[in-house]
């Protein structure tokens, strides 16, 4: 079975995000970029399925500027086999991503697509679900456990208040949650091997998908700063503040 894993190039999770002076978005110039952490989990899961003999090939897809090929190389260094870059400088929204992925899937014919449940930049949490709808495939979102047996897939989902296990028919879409696995390091020998792995390039135009944004960003603002706390002298003062200032009593 072939597994397809989409990966997104995002601002590194260690970087403190800054809003651009004009409020049009966040500052990306000279900022360290890395693979979306949920996508790393997706790559890791695919590699584990390959190590178990369930998967035969792992294809990694990224949609973004030329530099997104570095993100693909990271996945190849972890152990994926082949990469596809859908090159565009447009900031593609989840529906556009899902439509592009659908086109790639139609040529690649994977038996399983594993995506991160969301990207840490826009936190949309939409692409996997939209892709499943466009393809008419089964979906298992927020997975914390994935088991393939024959033509079916058991997915344990992290839902409010507990875990839910569902059985899906392949081909299917899985989106990863944090506890699915702990991604491995790309080892030095594999970083060197990744250089030689095939990486194809295509574009939204070639795939015939209109990726023009449907949403307009009106403004981007910093979260409100947390103000300093106060010390209270007595229980009475605390109760009074909770009642009159915080309004929680």
């Amino acid at each position: 079975m072939k597994i397809l894993v989409p990966v997104k190039r995002v601002v590194d999770y260690n970087v403190k995000i800054r809003v651009k002076q004009d409020g049009s978005g966040v500052e990306l110039a000279n900022v360290k970029m890395s693979m979306n952490p949920f996508d790393e989990i997706a790559v890791e899961e695919a590699i584990r399925l390959k190590e178990k003999g369930v998967a035969t090939e792992i294809v990694v897809v990224s949609i973004g500027p030329q530099q997104a090929s570095e993100t693909i190389r990271t996945a190849l260094a972890m152990g994926a086999d082949r990469g596809v870059l859908v090159k565009t400088d447009v900031n593609v929204e989840p529906l556009g991503v899902a439509k592009l992925l659908k086109k790639v899937i139609e040529t690649e014919n994977p038996g399983l697509v594993i995506l991160g449940k969301q990207a840490i930049d826009d936190d949309s949490n939409q692409t996997g679900q939209m892709l499943a709808a466009l393809l008419g495939w089964a979906q298992g979102t927020f997975a914390s456990k994935v088991e393939v047996s024959g033509e079916t897939l058991a997915v344990t989902r992290e839902i409010d208040g507990g875990l839910q296990t569902i059985e899906l028919k392949l081909p299917a879409i899985v989106t990863t949650d944090l506890r699915l696995n702990e991604p491995r390091y790309a080892s030095l020998p594999n970083i060197m091997k990744a250089k030689k792995k095939p990486l194809d390039e295509t574009s939204p135009e070639t795939l015939g998908v209109d990726v023009a944004p449907r949403l307009k960003v009106l403004s981007t603002v910093e979260p409100p700063k947390r103000s300093a706390g106060v010390k209270v002298a007595s229980v009475e003062e605390l109760v009074s503040k909770l009642k009159n200032e915080a309004g929680v009593l």
Binding site: S34, E70, R73, T74, Y185, A186, L188, I191, M192
Partner: peptide
């Protein structure tokens, strides 16, 4: 090269 930088990322995380 990009490979040097990729190795630096791996080492930093390690």
């Amino acid at each position: 090269t990009p490979e040097h930088l990729a190795f630096r990322d791996v080492m930093r995380r390690f």
